[in-house]
Design a protein around this nucleic acid. Sequence first.
RNA 1: UGUCCGAUGGUGUAACUGGCAACACGUCUGAUUUUGGUUCAGAAGAGUCUAGGUUCGAUCCCUAGUCGGACAACCA
Length: 563
Amino acid sequence: MDKEKDHLALTNSLNFIEQIVEDHNTNGRFEKRVHTRFPPEPNGYLHIGHAKSICLNFGLAQRFHGLTNLRFDDTNPETEEAEYVEAIEQDVKWLGFSWDERKFFASDYFEQMYAYASQLIRDGKAYVDDQTAEEISATRGTPTVPGKESPFRNRSVEENLALFEQMKQGKFQEGAKVLRAKIDMASPNMHMRDPVLYRIKKAAHHRTGNAWCIYPMYDFAHCISDSIERITHSICTLEFEVHRPLYDWILESLGVYQPQQIEFARLNLSYTVMSKRKLLQLVNEKLVSGWDDPRMPTISGLRRRGYTPESIRNFAHRIGVAKRDNLIDVALLEFSVREHLNQVCSRVMAVLNPIKVVITNYPEGKTEMLTTENNPEDPQAGHREIPFGREIWIEQDDFMENPPKGYFRLSPQGMVRLKSAYIIQCQEVVKDAQGQIQELKCLYFENSKSGADTSGLKVKGTIHWVSAAEAVDAEVRLYDRLFTVEEPDKQEDKDYKEFINPASLVVLPHCKIEPSLRQAKLGERFQFQRLGYFCVDKDSSPQQLVFNKTVGLKDSWAKEQKK
RNA sequence: UGUCCGAUGGUGUAACUGGCAACACGUCUGAUUUUGGUUCAGAAGAGUCUAGGUUCGAUCCCUAGUCGGACAACCA
């Protein structure tokens, strides 16, 4: 963390948005104020792409000693729900940012927006159109062909005012009329071809209930909300670039305070999908267990997976901001968690795929307590005791009957160090009738005890283990990338769902973990020695602990094997 | 014969605003290590989309082209 701060302090290079802010500070456009906002629509859960935006908006304000508002862009009652508002607030807080008292809703401003719309009408800059949605769409033209003006375009101000008032009063059916800006049906920018400002929706709104039956469109609501809140820099993603002329047109026409809209390239992460629509589909079609499925790129999914807010913030900082399309390697995200978890997690013993080892020369019934370090990266973390006995579990991967060269774990007649315990040597491989390994009979060297080794034996490998008598059973869920290809939604003529990784979730119901883990609390994170980082899942019960694998340790042996 | 935006190692971002390209991830060596982790030391990898122009000098400025992206919801 300190390293990160130093880096921030030392770096004098600004990203393009910070550059714009500096320019504004120099030319005095906003009196050196910086006031941003994070404006989610409460119609789904936040994902890692939103995290980038959150870090950008709150981070920019922090860097320039400004403020950031949280604003829910709730102008479409049909898709928005209070449940999402709750979840979004939790996610932003969890990421470590605070909007203080400045939580707003676009719906807070409905009254003001209505007044502004009326003002546009009075100024001859908006009109009520009776055309159907189909007609409007058909007369809009195409990017290369100009649109046609509506036959209702030149109604009188009085008539427009009256009609708009009646729309508000619910005198018309949904779809019967809309309010449109009167701009230019021949504009090369489609968004300037008399865009719809208000539509009739007889739906209950999560906050205003049935008070309204007309709702403003994004383009109208967003710029006005920004203006009301005295936002200086309205940061959004690239697809809104073509909306900027409209953003400016509305505010200029109204003659009100005008923020600067700035667009950046949204985050794309390899081996996943990021659109809300697709994530919702995965949830609805039960392809994942929910918004917080640990395989989801949602903030709640990453949280449940074991990611830390710090690691996500560092990730967001590392990927930078620019305007070109990008595809970030998910390995960078994984690096960011490992980096943080390595510093803070206790190391514990857990055997995922156990094989029994019987130490034939160790006294039956004897248990001794051995001391082990909690975290070699953090001397403050101290030590703890773990039981050792005649029968232990070790990892299947840590034994091979016919090891390849370079393998330095256990094999027939081979020796390994049991982490924080003794060196053992494999004497016999016991198999059942099918040839499956039942157990390994080993000898231990009494004088090879960790910290007091006088055996003089040199072994290359050290493996983890759990004493069989005291071992606790646990379920461990292993996760892999949700998709098998880098860009699942960009495969020609194929649906992204065809690329779901069938092995993205592997459940191991009978893992053996050290007894101290019985006390592990929900969400607590550990390094399972030599395996990776794991955290306690909410599905845990007093009878059965459930762990999620956050990310594996780097595995240079596995890499070597692939060659 | 539309408008707008973009182009720097495999990936992502820099280059103090014109002085022959840096950082991170990834990859590869080696050292240390009771985690094949961490840490440490080091290496390879782009001459900045192309062609012109301005300039003593261009990743940076200009022009044209190429390629990629966005835009035709009463969604945001």
